[in-house]
Design a protein around this nucleic acid. Structure first.
Length: 134
RNA sequence: CUAGCUGGCCGGACGGCCGCUGCCGGGCGAACAGGCUUUGCGGCCACAAGCGCCCGGUGGAGGAAAGUCCGGGCUCCAGGGAUCGACGGUGGCGGCUAACGGCCGCCGGAGGCGACUCCAGGGAAAGUGCCACAGAGAACAGACCGCCUGAGCGGGGCAACCUGCAAGGGUAAGGGUGAAACGGUGCGGUAAGAGCGCACCGCGCGACCGGCAACGGAAGCGGCACGGCAAACCCCACCGGGAGCAAGACCAAAUAGGGGCGGCGCGGAUGGCUUGGGCAACCUCGUCAUCCAGGCAUGAUCCAGGCCGCCGCCCGGGUUGGUUGCUCGAGGCGCGGAGCGAUCCGCGUCCCAGAUGAAUGGCCGUCGCGGAGGGAAACCUCCAGACAGAACCCGGCUUACAGGCCAGCUGGCAAA
């Protein structure tokens, strides 16, 4: 029975953690960009084994009320899909785009599922392409 | 009924599934510590607080949370005194308040038929400055056209006189310019005019009266001047240390360039003598003389002071993470009383967000409200639902805002 409940959401907290995930693989949709990267061995503490998520909502997207709402919708969406599609030991960063405020919640969920799959499919070549630019 | 004015208030409601967070209660678990027992490993017992998980209960964004424009509380830093100056702010009077640049009441001015609204509303006879363009003249004013007078030179006439030109003088009533031209109207007066004189109006001064005051009224006096701008400098009165919860305090980790206390010494340069070392240049110990006396801490000055080097001991800074500050407060609500009111007093009652990559929600349904369309109606369909998210806390101001409610008052219409 405890498996049926979605696990509580573990979020990224420090700026350094956000910057590290930028080097990982990415997938863009209409309302957000998803970035993912497996945690290095020394970062995996015993307590935190689950997938962790971070949200980036820049000031360009609107005033504080709109930004808060975008963040809450994305967080609710992640809570619904992370059981099936997120992998433990991974860090994810979701960079919001302006349609995230208005698009139907169902399409938001569908986009998130697709993006999570694609991010896990082909991490290799994207990683290499990104690595040269850094 | 309608048009308006003022003040106050609200800022969708209910339900379902799934979440976040503070507090309270309960349960479970692990570690440490405690007691008993055992030679020991270990076993048993008990619960205060903390930690993790679970269950239940309960609280969880705003009237502006916003802009960060004022005023405070709180915290740290600086702060010896006096005087002067600088800078910033405020600006009718009285009151309220912890305080304010806020609020209330009153006064003055402007607007409105009215309810009522608006006003940085001290000083322009302390000084400096500006008042463009137009206009002749614009701040100790000014004769362009006019009007009046007119030396003199002409023309006509016997003469009285008529008439043309005209230097100069008088004149601010008329024209013209302008935002503004030494007050307006009338009568008298005059060569023409003019406060030159008079009446009324306006203006200035104003004994005295009323008011705590701002101010109001006003006998009488003055023939009329003293223009505007102080949101130009300025003058006057009053107020004002600085920085802000990333304040500040504590804990842990890893690394070195600060502080306190005690003792000793009392800056530098040059020269003389001197101790010790060196072949010597020179280095070194001490002392005397002369000269300069330095830097730091509010802007200046004055008075009174402090610190600077070496040794020993003790303690801590900056960074990252965590804890705290952190929400009970100039607090909300109700009743009663004082006051025109802002507000104050008394009693009762309530505890009402505390997050920190930052919670206070996500999705869905029903109803209600507003607009448009359809329909005879019940009703149906579509659209809209604002401004906006606490970050230490209060008191204000300002700005944004779909829609709606209540009370009082004013004008008009109708009825009684």
């Amino acid at each position: 029975m405890p498996a049926a409940r979605p696990p509580s959401l573990v979020s990224l907290k420090r700026r350094a953690e956000f910057l590290r995930v930028r080097g990982g693989s990415r997938c863009a949709t209409a309302s957000f960009v998803l970035e993912a990267k497996p945690r290095a061995q020394q970062d995996v503490s015993v307590a935190v084994r689950e997938a962790r998520f971070g949200f980036t909502v820049t000031k360009r997207l609107g005033k504080a009320v709109d930004r808060n709402r975008i963040k809450r919708r994305l967080r609710a969406a992640v809570r619904n899909v992370q059981m099936k599609h997120a992998r433990p030991g991974f860090d994810y960063v979701i960079v919001a785009r302006s349609p995230a405020l208005d698009t139907a919640y169902a399409t938001l969920l569908g986009d998130l599922e697709k993006a999570l799959e694609r991010v896990h499919e082909a991490p290799r070549e994207r990683r290499g392409a990104k690595g040269t630019t850094r």
